[in-house]
């Protein structure tokens, strides 16, 4: 993966994310919860994209664009860092 989730970041089933390093909290939608969990299990972005396509009704081009945007946001919020 180009970027990696910080090790102390966890997400609850209903999409609540708490960053113990800053005290900030966030809300993520269901697909965001899946992605955050897959980021922990899989090594490459391609694998995460594959998982999304298998689970959701969507094409890979759209997923790639949206995932890129989502990862940028995670990085922006300092929940993830360059691998």
């Amino acid at each position: 993966m180009r970027i990696k989730l910080k090790s102390n970041i966890a997400v609850s089933d209903n999409g609540f994310v708490f960053d113990p390093a800053t005290g900030d909290s966030y809300s993520v939608n269901p697909i965001g919860v899946d992605i955050i969990r897959w980021m922990k299990t899989y090594d490459t972005e391609a694998e995460v994209i594959n998982q999304i396509i298998e689970t959701y009704d969507i094409d890979s081009k759209t997923v790639e664009k949206d995932l890129y945007d989502f990862l940028n946001l995670l990085q922006n919020y300092q929940l993830a860092e360059n691998a």
């Binding site: 609850s12 209903n14 999409g15 609540f16 708490f18 909290s25 809300s27």
Partner: peptide, 11 residues
């Protein structure tokens, strides 16, 4: 507890 805050803010 953080779980209270989590409940009101997510559900």
């Amino acid at each position: 507890d953080l779980s209270d805050f989590q409940k009101i803010s997510t559900i």
